[in-house]
């Protein structure tokens, strides 16, 4: 079976790179919206905060599992790259982890303590969300700069952290447009209108920097015929941004129609940007240093995992869909009973 598609040492790393990419993408969209909601909490009043938290309550845990999945695939399929990348990103990873710890626990604590302490946990929820998104953006920027220490690289990484934070708050606002009603929904539309600028700037900055850092990526982008094959990516992105912008100007509608559109658009935008990045870096898993083929685990271990993936993934997709179906519609108060 292993040789059915040719040399397993060739196709297995590609399959796992694709799986890892997919996990990261799903993570960025899903945890992106719940991190974004966390980033937006200081802009809301107390009752709205409860509603915002309620809108992500049943989902955040499963969303975060995609991060575990992504780092898990990096760990199990590309162990050499896992060590190289994570030791280079030691500090931002630690900051992200502390951020995730803060927000994950604040989420639970704020619902179970007396009011004065609840304010403190609200703060922790916000700070944790910002720490997480800033450090993830920082890691993205630093990765694009080739994981090399220099003032420019760290500067760009910081900028990238800022953009990702704004980007997450944008998709978070789009989520709230879908899940909230009344005053909060109005606010969310306003937030999304502001946030979309961050997305434009962020995607623009990363698109500029990526080919400039690496001659290899420059080559992949601007040689013929690649440049024509790639052209649809920025064009579709631009069209999407215009479309989202036009919709945001008309939301919310009286019948609450099209409330799902900004979130769907934001998800597609993230997907396009991610596709561009994935195309640029393939076949490297550590930029310009280590390819997926060099870093991959032994085929006999990968095949064992792949069998599991093929069986389990449809099941995971099924019950994830079930959860989103059960908690469909506008967010209601979260209650255990």
């Amino acid at each position: 079976m292993m040789n059915l598609f040719g040399d397993p040492a060739v196709w297995l790393p590609v399959v796992f790179a694709a799986l890892m990419g997919l996990s990261i993408l799903i993570y960025v969209v899903l945890d992106g919206f719940d991190l974004g909601v966390g980033i937006l909490t200081p802009l809301a009043d107390e009752a709205e905060k409860d509603r915002m938290v309620a809108s992500i309550g049943p989902f955040w845990d499963a969303n975060e599992t995609w991060l575990v999945m992504a780092v898990g695939i990096l760990l199990v399929a590309f162990p050499a790259a896992h060590g190289a990348i994570l030791t280079a990103l030691y500090l931002p990873v630690a900051i992200m982890l502390i951020g995730l710890i803060l927000r994950g626990t604040a989420f639970e604590f704020r619902a179970k303590v007396a009011l004065p302490k609840k304010q403190a946990w609200n703060q922790a929820f916000f700070v944790g969300s910002v720490m997480t998104s800033m450090s993830q953006g920082y890691m993205l920027g630093f990765y694009i700069m080739g994981l090399e220490h220099s003032i420019v690289a760290h500067g760009f990484a910081l900028l990238s952290g800022l953009f990702l934070t704004v980007g997450y708050s944008f998709i978070g606002a789009c989520w709230l447009i879908l899940k909230a009603e009344g005053q909060l929904q109005l606010k969310a539309v306003k937030w999304a209108r502001g946030g979309i600028w961050g997305v434009i700037l962020g995607v623009g900055a990363i698109s500029l920097a990526t080919p400039l850092v690496s001659p290899r990526i420059w080559e992949r982008w601007f040689s013929v015929p690649e440049v024509f094959l790639l052209a649809p990516l920025p064009l579709i992105s631009a069209a999407l941004i215009l479309g989202i912008w036009a919709v945001l100007r008309r939301l919310p509608t009286d019948s609450d129609s099209f409330a799902w559109l900004p979130f769907a658009g934001a998800g597609m935008l993230f997907t396009l940007a991610f596709t561009g990045l994935a195309y640029s870096f393939y076949p490297y898993v550590v930029p310009d240093r280590l390819t997926i083929y060099e870093a991959a685990s032994a085929p006999e271990s990968l095949i064992i995992i792949l069998v599991g993936v093929l069986i389990v993934t449809p099941i995971i997709a099924g019950y994830s869909a079930l959860a989103y179906y059960v908690f469909r519609g506008k967010a209601r108060d979260l209650r255990y009973d």
């Binding site: 845990d61 499963a62 599992t65 898990g72 199990v76 271990s301 995992i305 993936v309 995971i316 959860a323």
Partner: peptide, 22 residues
């Protein structure tokens, strides 16, 4: 270690996280 951790994520983490919400 890889496949064992992968099976933990695939057969346990997602299931508990998703059904925890319900």
């Amino acid at each position: 270690a890889g496949p064992l951790l992968a099976y933990e994520i695939m057969t346990a983490f997602f299931m508990e996280a998703v059904f925890l919400g319900i």
